[in-house]
Each structure stands twice: as structure tokens, then as C-alpha cells.
């Protein structure tokens, strides 16, 4: 398989699985060789456990879905106790996604994870969850706050530090630059878009919290545009995600400026999709005489 350089790291496959769409990596192990996945980004973990939002939390939409899970998670201490040991045994790269409500939360969560002695290669910082009032969104919409949060976290770790950007902003470029100035190693784009659905029979909102996060193929063109905007604004590497469902999508993201990609919603339907697409990507590289898919980064031409 063609490996991909990403900062100081080598990824065996450029296809990772997105936070919140692959649990803690163990749920699918009887169906999928999880070590064949380029990397696993675990469900957002917060300083304290969170029970999440009341049901209904999900709805199906045209080529997508709405979710409002509300960052349900066991909390960082339990994460270190019950999730890290399994993750440590994996041969794929593990990235821990963290979320918080204030700078101190993020910092303390990261410090606890740093001292837990995990084999994880880095952190993805969720500053873009649209589904909880305090989901870090206040950081994600302000370049200044993104920069100061990034620099505080930078002081606590030498591991890969990735800021995950929201598309629900006026200028994603500004936020991206803030994260770059704060010392982020890389950026992930994008998180879900704010969406809504109504059941016309009952006239009730489909999601308990009214608004939810839209994901899946429906958002791919928006994700692609955001990745390209970020690509033009910063020099650090980019992980592109949002609606990826086939190898052509992956090539598009890389041409738009991504170094790596993540698959999210499609994992639910096909838990082994990231491995299947990695094989297809290898075939594509062979057929097109590419030594690495990275050769295509940002090569999309303007008309």
C-alpha cells in the first residue's frame, strides 16, 4: 500500500475514520481488520462524562443524516482506564479527539491523556460541534479564541495537534490561520453543518434539539470548497472530510488540497469501507503511474 507522509509521521493509508463514526475502534473488530485502517480518530472525549442529548438524536435525509448526539462519552478518566488499553494494542495510528467548554477543560483533558502513556500519535481538537451549547463552537467561530486555545494546547504536547474546523462560520480561512498561528500541526475540515428536519405527520422536529449536524454525501461539495479555502490560507497539512463515499471523492479532496482524508457517516453502512477504498486508491495510483497519492495534493487547476 502506498504510504503517505504527514508532518513527521508516515500513514500506511491516507484514509482515516472520523471521530464519532468509529467509536473506540473495538466495536467492529469481528468484521473488519481495524489495523488496515489508515488511522482511527476516537469519539470526542471530554473532561467529565456526558450522557448526551435526549432522543431522537438522528434522522435520515437525502444523501445524508442529521445527528445531535450531544458528545455522549465516558469522560477522560474512564477513557484512559477502559478504552486506551485496547487502542494501545492496535497497529494503526490512533488520534484522540477531545472536546471541551473552556480552555481549562481542553488543557486538563489533554494533560490527563498525555500522562496516561498511550501509544496514540496525536490529538484532534473538536472546536466545531454544533450540537451542544458549550460544544466548543464559541472557539470554532472566533479566530482569536482558536489561536489562544491552540497555543495553550501546544504547550502541553509534542504529539500531532490537529484542530478540527467548522463550516458553520463566516470565514473558515480566518479560523484556519488562527489555528496555524497558535501552533497547530494540521487541520481537519469539516465537521457537520447545521441542519433541521420536520416530521410532517406529527409536525414535530425530527431531532430533539431542533437543529442537528448534517453529514454524509449531501455535504461533500461544501466540504470540498472549505478544504480548498483552507488550503489556500495555510501552509500546514490538511485532513479533508465530509461526505466521502468513494475513491473518486478521495481523489477530489486531495486535488483540492488535502493530505489525508477521513470517512465518517459511510462507516455506519459499511464498517470496512476505509479498507476497501484504500485498495481502490492503490489501484488508481498504479493505473496512473503515481508513486504516492500525495503527488496530487492541491493540483486542481482553475479555469
Amino acid at each position: 500500500m502506498s504510504s503517505v507522509k504527514f508532518g513527521k509521521l508516515d500513514f500506511a493509508s491516507p484514509i482515516l475514520v472520523a471521530s464519532g463514526t468509529y467509536g473506540y475502534g473495538h466495536e467492529t473488530k469481528s468484521m473488519v481488520d481495524v489495523n488496515g485502517i489508515g488511522g482511527i480518530i476516537t469519539k470526542s472525549v471530554t473532561l467529565h462524562p456526558r450522557e448526551g442529548n435526549p432522543p431522537p438524536r438522528i434522522a435520515e435525509t437525502s444523501s445524508g443524516m442529521l445527528n445531535s448526539i450531544g458528545l455522549a462519552n465516558v469522560g477522560v478518566n474512564e477513557y484512559c482506564k477502559s478504552k486506551l488499553p485496547y487502542l494501545n494494542e492496535l497497529n494503526t495510528k490512533v488520534i484522540i479527539n477531545i472536546a471541551g467548554t473552556a480552555v481549562d477543560d481542553y488543557v486538563e483533558t489533554l494533560k490527563i491523556l498525555e500522562s496516561a502513556g498511550g501509544n496514540h500519535v496525536g490529538y484532534e481538537v473538536n472546536i466545531s460541534c454544533p450540537n451542544v451549547k458549550e460544544g466548543g463552537m464559541s472557539f470554532g467561530v472566533s479566530a482569536k479564541m482558536t489561536e489562544s486555545l491552540t497555543s495553550e494546547l501546544r504547550k502541553c504536547t509534542s504529539k500531532l495537534l490537529i484542530m478540527k474546523l467548522s463550516p458553520n462560520v463566516t470565514s473558515i480561512e480566518d479560523i484556519a490561520v488562527g489555528a496555524e498561528n497558535g501552533g497547530a500541526d494540521a487541520l481537519s475540515a469539516i465537521n457537520t453543518l447545521v441542519g433541521m428536519g420536520i416530521d410532517i405527520k406529527t409536525r414535530k422536529m425530527k431531532i430533539n434539539t431542533t437543529f442537528g449536524g448534517l453529514s454524509g454525501p449531501a455535504i461533500k461539495p461544501i466540504a470540498l470548497a472549505n478544504v480548498h479555502k483552507v488550503f489556500r490560507a495555510v501552509k500546514i497539512p490538511i485532513i479533508g472530510l465530509g461526505g466521502i463515499s468513494c475513491v473518486e471523492d478521495i481523489i477530489e479532496f486531495i486535488l483540492a488540497g488535502a493530505d489525508l482524508v477521513q470517512i465518517g457517516t459511510l462507516n455506519y453502512r459499511e464498517p470496512g469501507i476505509s479498507i476497501r477504498l484504500a485498495e481502490e486508491l492503490d489501484l488508481y495510483c498504479r493505473d496512473n503511474n503515481l508513486t504516492s497519492i500525495s503527488d496530487l495534493k492541491g493540483l486542481a487547476e482553475y479555469r
Binding site: G20, T21, R50, G52, R57, I58, I69, A72, E78, N267
Partner: peptide
Amino acid sequence: GICQGCTVEFEKKQKTTEHSYRNRF
């Protein structure tokens, strides 16, 4: 057990299990 989308509310809080992150749902 991955998406956390299929919740039911418990009458009383339960012990957290491997897959259910908190005890209310």
C-alpha cells in the same frame, strides 16, 4: 454501538456499560 443515535431513556439511572456512555440513556 458506534453512532450513539438509538437511545432509550431509562426509568432509573443505570450502571455505565462498555457501550453506553452514561447511565440515563
